[in-house]
Computed example of a mutant assay.
Amino acid sequence: MSEQQPVSRRRAWLMAARPQTLPAGAAPVVVGTGLAVGTDVFAPLPALAALIGALLLQVGTNFANDYYDAIRGADTPDREGFTRVTAGGLIEPARVKRAMYATFGLAILLGTYLVWVGGPAILVIGLSSVAAGIAYTGGPAPYGYRGLGDLFVFIFFGLVAVTGTYYVQAVAGVAGIPPLPAPLAFVPPAAVVAALPAAGLSTCILVVNNVRDRETDAAAGKRTLAVLLGYTGSRIEFLLLLGMAYVVPLVFAATGYGVAVLLPLVTLPLAASLARTVLTETSGAALNPALETAGRLLFAHSVLFAAGLAVV
């Protein structure tokens, strides 16, 4: 859609929510649930609540980024990414901000059920996830502007999302509310290792985004890791994260899991195509489609990996 064409209010809100990112939000929950099925701790209601909560956190973070990047001047007319509704004047900033808080509020409300299931550990995870989603581009010292965005995505949209999903299912059948140290007892090392592909591929999406925006981010004073590392360093980071996503299934296969755990390897051609683009391109014309490809890769890899973990 051309920026000159009129945009309906409904379309503008869809643009702000960025529904194309929802598979990326769902992917780690799928992996955690697949492992829960394979270890006989699957609990459907906690799994569903974790999925909806993850999607709300994704949308809330999208609203936050749209709003805070605009008021900080990071979304300039030279930016080559998808249209941002706040900077583009499609929705009033105050309304985007209210939508952000409303979405995070719904996530917290849903989280009360998960806290009832999982105890104080889930309260800590949920509130820290909301705070991290806001502080990424908001607050007095947004860490996304200081080269820490990649670490945030790796931790919260990978490690925390997968292990948290597994944890609330593992404790669902336990009598009483588990104490705060409970995750140490209910989350096996396999859950942490299984989270690494989703963590790595989620971060790859951010790397593609930040490579595309490197020049405009630098001009706006937004010091993403791509700005700090440069194109070469960012591409090395991308390849390491991408490679990790394919090493982990091999590790599981070598440690007693069935051959089905190697299902994610069928996505290697898609990964190779994405890598060629990231290694050779910097323009929005090339990297905007690559962003969508990275999202599809994350979701496909996660679904296949979850299936392999579930049939063990």
Rank of each mutant, 00 (worst) to 15 (best):
A254G: 12
R223N: 13
Y257L: 10
V247F: 14
A226L: 05
L262V: 05
T232Q: 14
R223D: 12
L265C: 02
T224P: 12
L240Y: 05
G233C: 10
L265E: 01
A253S: 09
V259F: 12
L229P: 06
L241I: 05
A254M: 09
M244D: 08
G243P: 02
L228T: 11
G221E: 14
L239Q: 13
L242A: 13
T255I: 03
F252T: 02
T255V: 06
I236N: 04
P264E: 00
T267F: 09
V259I: 15
L239K: 14
L263E: 01
L241N: 04
G256E: 12
F238K: 11
Y246K: 05
F238S: 07
V248A: 09
T267W: 04
P264V: 01
L239D: 12
L225Q: 11
K222F: 10
L241K: 01
V261I: 14
A254C: 01
Y231V: 13
G243K: 07
T255C: 03
P249A: 03
G258T: 12
L263K: 00
T267R: 01
V247T: 13
G233W: 06
G243C: 08
E237W: 03
T255Y: 03
L228P: 05
L262F: 08
F252R: 02
G243A: 13
L228C: 04
G221N: 08
R223F: 11
L239S: 13
A260C: 07
V261F: 08
L241V: 10
L225R: 12
T232A: 15
L229F: 11
Y246H: 11
L250G: 14
G256P: 03
T267V: 09
P264A: 00
R223Y: 12
L250C: 09
R223M: 14
V266I: 15
V251I: 15
S234R: 00
T224M: 10
L239V: 13
L228H: 03
P249F: 01
G230L: 09
V266H: 05
P249R: 02
L240C: 14
G233V: 12
V261H: 01
K222M: 10
K222C: 09
M244C: 15
G233S: 08
A226K: 00
V248P: 02
V247R: 08
T232H: 13
L240G: 13
R223E: 15
T224N: 15
E237Y: 14
A254P: 00
L229K: 07
Y246I: 05
F252Q: 00
T255R: 11
L263C: 01
G256S: 11
T224I: 07
A260V: 07
G233R: 02
V227T: 08
G233L: 07
L225T: 13
V251E: 00
Y231W: 11
V227G: 07
L265G: 04
R235E: 10
F238Q: 05
S234C: 15
L265S: 03
G256Q: 10
Y231S: 12
L263V: 04
Y257E: 05
L229S: 08
G221C: 11
K222G: 09
M244K: 00
G243Q: 06
G243H: 05
G256M: 09
